[in-house]
Design a protein around this nucleic acid. Structure first.
Lengths: 105, 105
DNA sequence: TCTATATTTCCACAATAATGGAAATATAGT
DNA sequence: ACTATATTTCCATTATTGTGGAAATATAGA
């Protein structure tokens, strides 16, 4: 992951509707949910949802599979994990205790 | 952390200049850097840097301490760790293997 | 108090992004 | 072929955000 990709991924998540979608998919992974089901659960117009799902896909944060008339969306953990790693890269200059940034304060 | 706070934090990071600043501070934590030193290292005009540091502070992602004429900025790991946790909350519905989302794919 | 240095505020311009209804497209079942 | 259902595309409107020079503010040292 480089800075440009990270900005795209972060911009994607930096939006209330998309953040809700993303978190819902994290929680329902790895199975994922059909677009319509997401729309119902988040009470979101189909066109708005579709717009946001496209953005999330483009950023590589979610993936989709078609199954009949349904399109199932789920989290792409590769991108997500890469993003997390990028944000904490070389934390505290590589100091021992910071290999897990949860330990930092 | 709630959705609103997370959006603020993510919006903050979803910007090339701020992401660079943030990562630089992650790497130089816990000591941090003076504003002027950040400006030099990132080759950024002082006013632009100041604007972005203010945003990062407001989002709780960095903290600052004044020391003489210098203001030292450093990462606020509390917010950062809370953000990470929020994004991966209840991953895969709480399934065992997903307690660490690095294991998910 | 005067000067040098560090940081922040002010301002105006330019560019980008979110929303949702209506229509279009795609798939399944009869 | 027809109907019902699922999803996406199109479009126009509205609002928000990043930028950097110049000036203002703050602190330290002589």
């Amino acid at each position: 992951m480089d800075t440009k990709q990270a900005v795209i991924a972060l911009s994607c998540l930096a939006q209330e509707a998309r953040l809700q979608i993303f978190r819902l998919l994290v929680q329902t992974s790895p199975a994922g949910l059909a677009a319509g089901e997401i729309a119902i659960r988040l009470n979101m117009p189909a066109s708005t949802l579709s717009f946001h799902l496209k953005e999330l896909s483009h950023a590589g944060l979610v993936k989709s599979v078609q199954s009949g008339r349904f399109v199932y969306y789920s989290t792409n953990f590769n991108t997500m994990n890469a993003l997390m790693a990028f944000l904490t890269e070389n934390c505290c200059g590589g100091e021992q205790s910071c290999s897990k940034p949860e330990n930092c304060s």
